[in-house]
Amino acid sequence: MWILLIGLYLFSVYFLSVLERRMVYKKWNFAAPFSTLAFLLVQEDVKPHQRDRIFYETAPVLFIAAALMAVGVLPFAKGFIITGLSTGALFINAAFAYIMVAIVMAGWAPNGVYSMIGGWRFLAQLIAYSMPIVMAITATVMRAESMSLVNIVASQTHLWNIIYQPVGFVLFYVAAMALAFLPPFDLPLAPGELAEGVWAEFTGVKLLLFRLGRLMLILSLSLAVTVLFLGGWEGPLLPGFAWTFIKTILVAASFFLCGQYVPRVQHDDLLEWSWKLLTPLALFNILWVGILLLL
């Protein structure tokens, strides 16, 4: 069963990379991930002059580790969870906070202008958007009366959180896109403006780790949306893990689809909306759930 789950996970990563490519080039290309993988594995490792050696080596590893750490506490199916922490809902926040640390390190390390701007931009973006994420998760925790993610899924047996607290879902969805720097919020990379920003100075295996880590991050976030708001493994007919993966892939596809039709958000607008609109809305959401719970 675990082997099946790992296989499904790897397949999802592959499928997401195909899907991401489809959104950019408007063409299905099922071999592209493999050729990119082979290309990045053999590419020459070009190192910038006067880089910060330690950060340059550790940033990609920290990035992919943080993306994978969140998967460790998210349940795939009933009884299939790697570590059933009783503070799981807090732990995924902690794991996602280290995405920011990794990107700031990666922006600082190569001693390049574009990457540094990208790194500090992402710092501001993520601090602004971690507020809605934390508060949306808090509201789901309030409903389940437990920080364990298994209990959060169990609390949604009768009514999914997306209907119970739609505001929280929208907040988490938008903030998740900002966290994974997907197209409308891709300010740290900003192709066409910053020329791949943070990743500009990374080549070969390090770039591979970043790209793979980003796909895994998107997958972790979609899984988090599924578990927190879409009822996790609940669903008729099919077995639990199948529902989890179907929902996860659909959420990830909707991330890509949303990004395709929205222009890139300006940096000042991004911060203003987050602090002045999303954070008060998140507080309102907590109030809303509290009132519903007391009724």
């Binding site: 902690a94 906070a97 280290y98 920011m100 640390v101 700031v104 600082w108 500090w120 710092l123 601090i127 971690s130």
Partner: peptide, 9 residues
Amino acid sequence: ATEMTIMAI
């Protein structure tokens, strides 16, 4: 994570 990165900037 957040506090020390803010310190860094």
